[in-house]
Design a protein around this nucleic acid. Structure first.
Lengths: 213, 213
DNA sequence: CATGCGTGTTACTTCCGGTAACACCGAGTC
DNA sequence: GACTCGGTGTTACCGGAAGTAACACGCATG
């Protein structure tokens, strides 16, 4: 019947879609998240309506684009999280993997983390709904790993989720700041963050003459 | 001379500016960060060019708006950070203050944290430059407090800054997620996060049959 | 009375997201 | 071979938002 035809068409459409995404990628990485649909279409050698036929609207294109990079980064992180080593080493490896990624491609990072621009008609305050999907996904993944491997006693699932999102946020914020100011080497940053997670904040002594933060 | 006149004019201009900011506040809180300059002007009972004379461009208005709320929130946080209690209690009080604030006014929070929309012509990748000024400021403040009060040995200043930004990021991400899903009470969240900072991650035992995250 | 000057307006330009309507082209059908 | 039909492409437009130019009123001062 038309199954082979369908497959052909689907394949062709998929290839086209990939080409369009790659063009969009180039433009977004060059012009930032503010890249216009016209510019992307021009880069792909076509015109706007085709983009809209493929991706619905700008949000759809951006979501598709983000999914590619997000999936790639999450794969790297999973690998680091699954490496054969003790807990501290794994945490450090994961932090380092993330920081390496954002260091290597800051534009991608910026695009993923600050995709705002949301639809112009997003009235109600669906806080955090569209915010940073990558952060959410990383938080959930980490939560799952924590819950799988650590014995946290009662309420472990909830605790793991809080920690997952919290740790991801810590990593993200510290990485964002570090990427902007570059106050130290990556290794130092990794070590400092791991130290924080290892309770050095609680263990530190009061400074002389201070009532003890 | 014209000093008194100048002062009068300045005062008048300042009052006007404050009125405009309050109108903008109402609109932004109602329509979200996508509020149009026309809408804000209408709310203030005037027209666009006046807004532009006062604030330069949309970014300027938003910056002014953000500064107000940011300052207010930072004041609350400083108070919690300076309360007379031991370290753990202070940390919990600070976390709770932040979470209370975002819980009470989620629209304000959303506006402050996701102000993107940046100027359409921000070519170069000044990553994190315009990102979330509030997060940066909170991170720096916390870093200062940490560095002032804790004895962290050599490299304390750098360590304090890493921790400041990291902890703020943890608080932010966990809060953002919590606000969206409400998986537990505020008190539980505070306790879980404080536990994380107190090293429970490192102290937790491996789950049976797991190679130890 | 004229001259600025601050405050306000209307009307415009430009750009972007999104869409409607039309044009081409290759494959199957009578 | 003419005819339809689905997919791919185009031009030309709409609506709305940022930002600006040019003009108009009120009011103090010389």
């Amino acid at each position: 019947m038309d199954t082979t035809q369908r497959t052909d068409q689907q394949r062709s459409a998929d290839r086209r879609r990939r080409e369009l995404l790659e063009a969009a990628d180039r433009v977004v990485l060059r012009d930032g998240p503010g890249a216009s649909m016209n510019a992307i279409a021009a880069e792909a050698g076509i015109t706007k309506p085709i983009l809209y036929r493929h991706f619905g609207d700008k949000g759809g294109l951006y979501a598709a684009l983000a999914k590619r990079h997000t999936d790639a980064l999450l794969d790297s992180l999973r690998a680091a999280l699954d490496a054969p080593a003790d807990r501290r080493e794994r945490v450090e490896a994961t932090l380092d993997t993330y920081l390496s990624a954002i260091e290597a491609r800051p534009q991608v990072y910026r695009f993923l983390m600050h995709p705002a621009e949301g639809a112009p008609s997003e009235q109600g305050f669906d806080v955090g709904k569209h915010s940073a999907p990558l952060l959410r996904r990383m938080g959930e993944e980490l939560a799952q790993v924590i819950e799988e491997r650590l014995d946290l006693g009662p309420g472990s699932q909830q605790l793991a989720r809080v920690w997952g999102h919290g740790i991801v946020g810590m990593m993200h914020a510290a990485g964002d700041w570090w990427l902007g100011e570059r106050p130290c080497s990556r290794a130092e940053l990794v070590r400092s963050l791991a130290d924080l997670l290892w309770g050095r904040l609680a263990a530190a002594g009061d400074r002389v003459g201070s009532p003890g933060f």
